[in-house]
């Protein structure tokens, strides 16, 4: 049996290399902000992808907070609190960033797919 390297070996090796490159791009290169966790009163309420733009209402202890999702970011549009600190926080767009309406006990937490930061000093 001939054990030398044949053209077929090169083909397989070539295909493998292409596959490695494709796997790297496909699996490792993630968006900075992939999803949004919504917490209500100390419990995880929803995990939403930050892919398309939409607004939705989250029922908190005081009433509904309106939030806006967009590709890679999210924010409070309105909340039934007095100070509107949640709305003033503006867009949050990196893994670890938080916006919260504490009176309504609703908080938004961006989850970076690569989790670049374990916490953000605010």
């Amino acid at each position: 049996m001939n054990t030398g390297i044949r053209a077929g070996d090169f083909l397989v090796a070539g295909l493998a290399l292409v596959l490695v490159g494709w796997s790297y791009v496909h699996f490792w290169h993630s968006e900075p902000a992939a999803s949004l966790e919504v917490w209500v009163d100390g419990a995880r309420h929803a995990s939403l992808p930050l892919i398309e733009s939409r607004t939705l209402a989250i029922e908190g202890v005081l009433g509904a907070s309106r939030i806006e999702l967009a590709p890679g970011r999210a924010r409070f549009l309105a909340s039934p609190c007095e100070s509107k600190r949640c709305v003033h926080t503006g867009w949050i767009d990196q893994g670890g960033m938080v916006a919260a309406c504490l009176p309504n006990r609703v908080s938004l937490h961006v989850q970076g797919r690569d989790r670049r930061y374990d916490a953000i000093n605010l």
């Binding site: 503006g90 867009w91 670890g96 960033m97 670049r116 374990d118 916490a119 953000i120 000093n121 605010l122």
Partner: peptide, 24 residues
């Protein structure tokens, strides 16, 4: 946002510091 970190995970704990005048 104010925190104390001990030990590490599979890498050191990485903490971001918010920009005081810009998002991020």
């Amino acid at each position: 946002g104010d925190l104390r970190a001990i030990g590490a995970r599979e890498r050191p704990w990485r903490i971001g510091i918010r920009h005081p005048r810009a998002p991020g």
